[in-house]
Structure formats: structure tokens, C-alpha cells
Design a protein around this nucleic acid. Structure first.
Length: 271
DNA sequence: CCATATACCTGGCAGC
DNA sequence: TGCTGCCAGGTATATG
């Protein structure tokens, strides 16, 4: 579910409300992708200073250490003054004096991991290999082009890998490549400079637009206030196999790349 | 180092 | 209805 836009929308929907909250209790449900790494009880008394994002990870800065939260494929957070009894798919409650932050994650590919600092091994293991942030002004064409030059695999899969640029998942990879008029199977190293420039601009444009639309709610994404997103309504290619291209009316095609579905317009995205 | 396959887990849906 | 197989927004890890 959650790519950069959904994670950022989630962050914005509770960051201010949880700032300066004191942790009163923490309850963990079924095992997630990785263990918390510390006793939930040991976090009682800590204060949540703020919420940042790195790639698809949310970083909850505490007055001592931090929590890394990942939503996996099916995770969502909810922050409210109170929560109902936990359901079978609620796997974390962070009870604070400003509300309860609850992680709902049916597939349990998500995770909540404690780290003593962002530079500590337990955090670096997850963050160190991540590529540049596309929306923070540090994303530059020259470095992007350099990163792509080294990669022999298809551009779609290089985007998904997240070690050149972070945040572009399976929906937005197809959308960005459509906007940039690039065939997803093109080898990254073979992209012409104009195409790299178009892709760079498309990534920024698509992700910003998706954030503005509250993310994509294909199935069940909601932000920490329980609100759905609307970007899926304007998706150009994702999930539209067989439907007419919004630009040229040619039927959208789909294919598999690395076991993931890719969607593209064979007319607008020439090899 | 690089590229690709695999594993994790649950629910929804098409097809029979 | 109920079963089976396939698909789904991610990514560390194993394998070649």
C-alpha cells in the first residue's frame, strides 16, 4: 500500500498532534516483520518530540532514542484521543497523554523498531542504503543521471529498488514512467539525458501531486485521521490494463517485472 | 559489487 | 456455497 506519498500524508496527519506527547504505555500485538528490539514497557515515560520521514519509514523522535515505523504493504496508522478494543489486525498501541497511536496491518509486513539513535546499527541497517529524497530539494538531475548510468536493469526495477531515489513504489513507478514517456523495460544505463531529465521532473511532479491528493487508496489506505486519498482516480496507467490511454486512447498494457505488475502505454512510451 | 528470486502474511476475488 | 489459485501498495536476505 504505502509509498512515499501515503507515508508523508500519514506523517502530516498526526505529527503536530503527537508532538510533546508523553508515552504512558505501549502494547504490541502479533509479531511484525521485525521485533521492536526493546521492551515496550521501557519506553514508558519517554516523550515524542516529532515525526520525520525517510523514504517509506516514519521516524518518531523520542527524548531518548527513536522509533522507526514502516507500514509494509497493508499498514496504516491511526492517532486518536482514544481507541476501541484492538481488533485482530491491530498490532501496536502507543498510548500517550495526547492520544493513542495505533498500527493496523493485516499482512504484518510492517514494523516498529526502536533504535538508540539514528546512527545506531539497528537504525542504519534499515536506512543506510536508501537513495536520495525526491521532494526535499536535494534531488538533482546530475546525480540522478550518474546513479542510473551504473545500472543495467530495467528503469522500473531501479526505481523500485530505492537505492538511487527513495519513495517510488509500484504504483508511482508506472505513473512516473508514463508521464516521462519512457518504456519501463528500458535499461536504466541506456536512458538519454533528455529522458533522465523528464523522469526526474516526473517523479517530483507525480509524488507532489499524490501527496496533495492525500495519497492513493486503492483498497484500504487511510491516513492517521481515517481519511482516504484520491490519487487513484487520476492514475494514468496503474491498474488500467486494457483501458484506453488518457492521452492517445491506445489500450494500456501490463507486464511482469521482477514479479511485480507494470502498466504502460505502448504508444506514448516508445522503447 | 550487481541482478534476480525468495520469503514473510492475510484477505479478496475470479473461476469452477 | 465453497473450494482453489492468484493477486496485492515492500524490502531484507539469499543465491547466482
Amino acid at each position: 500500500m504505502p509509498e512515499l506519498p501515503e507515508v508523508e500524508v500519514t506523517r502530516r496527519s498526526f505529527a503536530e498532534r503527537i508532538a510533546q506527547a508523553r508515552i504512558l504505555a505501549m502494547h504490541m500485538g502479533k509479531p511484525l516483520r521485525w521485533p521492536l528490539g526493546v521492551s515496550p514497557q521501557s519506553l514508558v515515560g519517554r516523550t515524542v518530540l516529532g515525526v520525520r520521514r525517510r523514504g517509506k519509514y516514519l521516524l518518531l523522535d523520542l527524548d531518548e532514542g527513536l522509533l522507526l515505523v514502516h507500514l509494509g504493504m497493508s499498514g496504516s496508522l491511526n492517532f486518536a484521543p482514544r481507541q476501541d478494543a484492538a481488533g485482530p489486525h491491530d498490532h501496536m498501541d502507543l498510548v500517550t497523554d495526547r492520544g493513542v497511536l495505533r498500527l493496523h496491518d493485516p499482512r504484518r509486513f510492517g514494523a516498529v523498531v526502536w533504535a538508540s539513535s539514528q546512527s545506531a546499527p539497528e537504525a542504519q541497517k534499515l536506512l543506510s542504503h536508501l537513495g536520495v529524497e525526491p521532494l526535499d530539494g536535494q534531488f538533482e538531475v546530475a546525480a540522478f543521471a550518474e546513479g542510473l548510468k551504473k545500472r543495467q536493469s530495467a528503469i522500473k526495477q531501479v526505481l523500485l529498488a530505492g537505492d538511487v531515489v527513495v519513495g517510488v513504489g509500484n504504483i508511482y513507478a508506472s505513473e512516473c514512467l508514463f508521464l516521462a514517456r519512457i518504456r519501463p523495460t528500458t535499461k536504466a544505463s541506456r536512458l538519454s539525458r533528455p529522458r533522465v531529465e523528464r523522469l526526474h521532473a516526473a517523479i517530483v511532479q507525480v509524488l507532489n501531486r499524490a501527496v496533495a491528493q492525500g495519497g492513493s487508496s486503492l483498497k484500504d489506505f487511510v491516513n492517521a485521521e481515517g481519511r482516504t486519498g484520491y490519487f487513484q482516480l487520476e492514475a494514468a496507467v496503474y491498474g488500467r490494463a486494457g483501458e484506453p490511454c488518457r492521452v492517445c486512447a491506445t489500450p494500456i498494457k501490463s507486464l511482469l517485472q521482477g514479479q511485480r505488475s507494470t502498466f504502460f502505454c505502448p504508444q506514448c512510451q516508445k522503447p
